[in-house]
Write a protein that binds this DNA or RNA. Structure first.
Length: 119
RNA sequence: CGGGGAAGCUCAGAUGUCUGCGCUACGUAAGCAGUGAGGAAAGUCCGGACACCACAGGGCGGGAUACUUCCUAACGGGAAGCUGCAGCAAUGCAGAGCCAGCUCCACAGAAACAAACCGCCUCUGAUCAGACAUUGCUAUCGCAGUGGAUUUUCUGGGGCAAGGGUGAAAUGGCGGUGUAAGAGACCACCGGUAUCUCCGGUAACGGAGAUAGCCAGGAAUGCCUUAUCCGGUGCAAUGCCAAAUAGGAAAGCUCAGCGCUGCCCGCGCCAGUAUGCUUUCGGGUAGGCAGCAAGAACCCUGCCGUGAGGCAGGGUCCAGAGGAAUAGACAUCAUCCUGCGAGACAGGAUACAGAAUCCGGCUUAUGCGCUUCCCCGGGUU
């Protein structure tokens, strides 16, 4: 039930995102989606490290999303933009970080949809 | 045994469980099978293949290279050799041309390419001493005057580049002739350089001999000179397919407008024309496909070559993504390090690093190991 964002033009849409969640390691713009499934993409710039470091980080993030038992919010598109310190995360640290971030996203989107339903 | 030198090679942790990914084949599908990073994939420093554009020929300009011969598709790469330097040696490092021109040579030093600080010699003048000769006086010793070989010091003019000291570097060495003093100015021998002849070598070059006083530096990773080579841009090349929107063309149907012009007149376009609708066509964007994985390929054997390498035969198929797969987690084992209570121990670590059109090199990064050959010193037989 997860769609990967690949296309460059779709990444460009997130520049104008209203909701942006920031943590120590990631910047995460959030956009609403007309599709029923959850969609996300990953952006890791060259400032994070060399190719080996960037590949490992991306694979761990993708592996985390495949294995996670948390229910992901539907009708939402996000991208994870890695910040400079993200390259030094261990698997355990990444697990805690992503769990925390996804919790914040669910809470925030839930509040906003409630607010829209009851003006 | 110790020390040193050279050439080359293997692996790139292993197995299992769970959860997954790209590509390919089969299947309607669910699925299932196969396959999936490197020695440097890196830096992008050279050279090519391939693609498009440009191109009669020549010159100027620019870039690269630089002992010789060879290897190669090509190279700035490699092999073998030559010369010089370093090392006891094995070996290592370097390589066109400063009598074509220009420029530079810190500090020190007189001077860094043409000169003269000390110095040596000579001339003029002054000056110190003065053998000797001569004149006068005197009985003699001696005193005074004149000339004066020679000589001390100084000023100025001229000659020299042998010696001193400085420096990374100062114009070949030694002996003689010569000269006022000296100097390849000249002579013998030696060293170097150049030219010529002979011999060896494809050549760089080496050996022998003769001739020439020729011997007045260094730096071309200074400008430069000489020789050779080089068109430009790059797979985001390039080719094909091709939505939506806007504009173009044509056909069919539809109907009387459209522009100058806000209004009227007038004029222009114009009768199957303007407008509208539908369809088709071509250009072309997003997007898709190809380029794109069987080649200067790899492995084995034989032959040729000192070698780089070449030839022949046999065998193998070995990643193909495109915001980019090749993974994540957990166990057990292996290797290494540290610690001590010394072993079925504990803790930690397991490098450098990720294909992007493809090859040949170079350079740099990097973990544990292994092999062969050579030199020097010591010991034993």
């Amino acid at each position: 039930m997860t769609r990967w964002i690949h296309r460059h033009s779709e990444f460009q849409e997130f520049i104008r995102a209203d909701q942006v969640i920031r943590s120590q390691f990631f910047t995460i713009p959030v956009l609403p989606s007309s599709e029923p499934e959850f969609a996300f993409g990953i952006t890791i710039g060259k400032r994070i490290g060399k190719a080996v470091v960037r590949n490992l980080l991306r694979r761990r993030i993708k592996a985390w999303f495949r294995q996670t038992t948390l229910s992901l919010a539907p009708r939402i598109r996000i991208i994870l933009i890695a910040r400079r310190e993200a390259g030094s995360l261990s698997w355990q640290q990444l697990d805690a970080e992503l769990s925390d971030v996804i919790g914040r996203i669910r809470q925030k989107t839930h509040n906003s949809t409630d607010h829209a339903a009851h003006p």
